[in-house]
Nucleic acid binder design. Structure first.
Length: 585
RNA sequence: GCGCCAGUAGCUCAGCUGGAUAGAGCACCGGACUUCUAAUCCGACGGUCGCAGGUUCGAAUCCUGCCUGGCGCGCCA
């Protein structure tokens, strides 16, 4: 089915024509059509054009306004201020738009990214470690971007770059071998993350022994070698660790409502067999050079405090590969084998320099070409409610699960007050939906790049710009549709249109444009802002314009059409953010 | 030292890539529930857009310099 052309594009087309008629000598013109608070739209293009051609901007604006030929679309065009053209649309055109989107598949959005293969690398927790607050943003933002790209038609390849390799596993495996009494497979059968929690504790014990006992340290190092050289007994334990950890991650993603599955796992170990070849290729090309016993890539414009170039370290002096080698193997694989058009790395802003080096190296090697877009999608740090780095009272790392538990508990408290007679099971489900939704919305609605304070009290607040507000708006929409029962769903384009109906319909029509912007900027907070505005615009409509009790049948039908489209748009948007859209609250 | 990022209302944040009087939420004050869910809405209050120059019809937005804060810069990932 054909996508529905947004009104703003139809207006732009009309304005380009008008500009051309008013000023034929102007070549390509930008009409600069925007929403306006004094009309449906405003066109600012005449202003710049007048300047270029030495014309009086107000006069040219008037000429352009007079040259508009779009009778079914534009009902009035007036010059204002220095040369803005204020445009009002016919209510017929706006109603027709509502009708077209309602009748269309996918809200008339179409699939602008169809045919694109996009990789999103996100989450990346560590095997044998609990997920903590540091994994929150990459997981939530990455998932939202993946859902967004998918909705726009892209072929999505999610890559969960698990931390499943490294010297620490030698230490842990050796410790486990020496302490068979340290049972961790059934730490708590009711809690799928308990095994990993147990492993996390055992790892810390192993670390202590490693630091205190040189003999154990030697045995641990030997175990690293055994693991790397493929010793079967050692690999068996390692695989066990990976598998149990993956189960815990699955449980976490399930709880969080994140779309990652076992099929998306592509940990560091995935690239082990490629490392020799990748590094050889870089050496052969003269890109990687030896320095102080290590194998490095240098860059002219990247220097350290001493003024010397800072290398990207591929292979350490002890012969072991660093994570840079893994990242290079991964990017080569993603381009050559996965055929990615776009690779998004949703990783902490502090790794900006690292990615700059990796991308530059891949470009020099000829792997990363102009046809492929590799982008670091950075985000700021999660701070505690006090605005300082987020730590537990004892200064430890905050577990992700306890964070979610806290949010859900607070949501449950707040919701319980409003629904004292509700079924406890329903209440628990609703608390999970709103608590998780609150956490995700709080994260996604802030500009990605800035640090933000994790303040549970504020995020589960029932008032204001929160996930709950959007969910509540959705339940009201759903409630109206429930009570309306079956309707024949036709919208009468000749019907009158109230101010609130107009505002809502125009905003609905801009959804696809917003999705496209959110994607090109990789900024989910734009979508959040849109949805919040949608919910507000709807609520204003709802307060002023009775739907089920509308004055006439015709008005009722049109308003129901608006309600249906609003519900579908809001639900669609919430889904892209990974936030539940409940039917009742 | 070099580099990256940020600085907007008392607090938390938007500001659609240069447009008209800079917008929301929270807090505070005043209104609106026999009416489709008041978890809401309406109104009032509140800002030298870090500072100083520059670019132009027009700057929170672009350029330069400075101030403040955060982060990064060889064998951790």
């Amino acid at each position: 089915m054909q996508p529905v052309t947004p009104l703003v594009e139809a207006v732009e087309t009309a304005m380009v024509d008008a500009l051309r008629r008013a000023l034929p000598e102007a070549g390509r013109t930008e009409p600069l059509v925007r929403r306006s608070d004094r009309a449906d739209f405003q066109a600012n293009g005449a202003l710049a054009l007048a300047k270029q051609h030495g014309r009086n901007p107000r006069e040219l604006g008037a000429a352009v306004a007079a040259a508009i030929e779009a009778p079914g679309l534009i009902s009035s065009a007036e010059v204002s201020g220095p040369g803005f053209i204020n445009l009002d649309l016919t209510s017929e055109a706006i109603w027709a738009q509502v009708a077209a989107r309602t009748d269309s598949d996918l809200l008339g959005l179409g699939l602008p990214l169809a045919g694109k293969r996009i990789i999103v690398d996100y989450s990346g927790p560590n095997v044998a470690k609990e997920m903590h607050v540091g994994h929150l943003r990459t997981t939530i933002i990455g998932d939202a971007l993946a859902r967004l790209a998918e909705a726009l038609g892209a072929t999505m390849i999610r890559q969960n770059h698990l931390g499943d390799w490294g010297t620490q596993f030698g230490m842990l495996i050796q410790y486990l071998n020496e302490h068979p009494e340290a049972e961790w497979h059934h730490a708590d059968d009711a809690d799928p993350t308990a095994n990993v929690a147990a492993l996390d504790r055992l790892y810390k014990q192993a670390r202590n022994v490693f630091d205190a006992d040189p003999d154990f340290a030697d045995r641990a190092r030997a175990r690293v070698v055994a693991l790397q050289s493929g010793d079967e007994d050692t690999r068996k334990v390692w695989r066990d660790l990976v598998e149990v950890s993956a189960e815990a991650f699955d449980a976490m993603y399930e709880r969080l409502g994140v779309s990652l599955t076992a099929a998306d796992l592509a940990g560091e170990s995935t690239y082990n067999h490629l490392l020799d070849n990748v590094v050889e290729e870089l050496v052969a090309a003269g890109i990687a050079v030896e320095s102080e016993g290590a194998l490095c890539v240098f860059f002219d414009d990247i220097t350290g405090p001493d003024g010397n170039p800072v290398p990207l370290l591929l292979r350490k002096a002890d012969g072991g590969y660093g994570y840079a080698a893994t990242d290079l193997a991964a990017i080569r694989y993603r381009i050559r084998d996965l055929k990615a058009d776009q690779i998004l790395y949703v990783v902490d802003a502090r790794q900006a320099l690292h990615f700059k080096q990796v991308f530059a190296t891949a470009r020099r090697a000829g792997w990363l070409t102009d046809e492929v877009e590799a982008v670091h999608v950075p985000f700021g740090t999660v701070l505690g409610p006090d605005g300082k780095p987020f730590k537990t009272r004892s200064g430890g790392t905050v577990r992700l699960m306890s964070l979610l538990d806290e949010a859900i508990a607070k949501a449950s408290e707040v919701i319980g007050e409003k629904n004292s007679d509700a079924d406890p099971a329903d209440l628990a489900a609703l608390a999970a939906a709103t608590g998780i939704g609150a956490v995700k919305y709080a994260d996604l609605s802030n500009n990605r790049i800035k640090d933000y304070a994790f303040d549970t009290d504020r995020m589960v607040s029932l008032t204001g710009d929160t996930g709950v507000y959007l969910q509540y708006a959705h339940t009201r929409l759903a409630s109206i549709l429930r009570m309306a029962g079956k309707t024949n769903g036709t919208v009468d384009t000749a019907a009158p249109m109230s101010r609130e109906e107009r505002a809502l319909a125009l905003h609905l029509d801009a959804y696809g444009t917003n999705l496209a912007e959110s994607m090109t900027e990789r900024e989910p907070h734009r979508l959040c802002g849109y949805l919040y505005m949608l919910a507000r615009t709807f609520t204003r409509f709802y307060e002023a314009n009775p739907v089920l009790k509308a004055e006439t049948d015709e008005i009722r039908k049109n308003r129901l059409g608006l309600v249906r489209l609003t519900r579908d748009t809001l639900a669609h948007g919430l889904n892209l953010l990974g936030i539940a859209a409940p039917e009742r609250m």
